Simulated assay, not measured.
Amino acid sequence: MTDRRGVVAKRAENLTPGVPYVRGWVRARRGAETLARQLAALGLESDFPGLSADVNVFGDGLVSLGSIRPEAAVLLAELIASGLAAEMADDAAHTPGEHEHRNAPAA
């Protein structure tokens, strides 16, 4: 498996000397643990039983969600969209508008 950016390549089952597999796996483990904590806080850990860390042939860390129900995928997408909407609203609330900027007194 390789996406258009080459990020997700074949899993590393045979190790090649000089490839930093452990570093990539540790990064993936941290990411998986962070996601697991957030899912647990929402009571959703049972919806993602296959959540795990892995590494590909290039030593890039991978976080796998495993097989999940379609409803869990929809819920995750909704949570991401809600978070992005909240972030954009927060950014808009803290960004001065053009009118405020143009009429600000000169320093």
Rank of each mutant, 00 (worst) to 15 (best):
E33N: 13
R30E: 14
M88P: 05
R69Y: 06
G50R: 05
L51Y: 02
M88G: 08
H101F: 10
H101A: 03
R69I: 01
V63M: 09
G83Y: 14
N56Y: 04
V8I: 15
V22N: 13
D54G: 00
S52L: 04
A92Y: 13
L15T: 12
L62V: 15
E33H: 08
T34L: 01
L42Q: 06
L15S: 09
E45S: 00
R23W: 10
F48D: 07
G43Y: 03
R23D: 14
H94P: 04
H101T: 14
T2I: 10
A73F: 09
Y21L: 01
R11K: 15
L51C: 00
H101S: 05
N14L: 13
Y21K: 04
V55Y: 03
V57L: 09
A77P: 08
E13V: 15
A77T: 15
L75G: 04
Y21G: 12
V74D: 06
R5P: 05
Q38L: 03
R29G: 03
F48L: 01
A32F: 00
V19P: 12
R11W: 11
W25P: 05
A12V: 12
P96C: 02
G61F: 02
A40R: 15
Y21S: 04
A12C: 14
Q38T: 01
A93Q: 11
P17L: 10
R23E: 11
L51R: 04
E33R: 12
T95R: 03
G61Q: 08
L44D: 01
V7A: 09
P20Y: 02
G31F: 00
A73Y: 11
N14G: 07
T34G: 01
L75M: 06
V8E: 12
L79I: 13
G66Y: 07
L44K: 13
A89P: 11
S67K: 08
V74W: 08
R4Y: 11
G59P: 06
R23G: 11
L39Q: 02
L65H: 06
R69W: 06
E45G: 01
S52G: 00
V22P: 04
G83L: 07
G61Y: 06
P70T: 11
N56K: 10
P105L: 09
R4S: 11
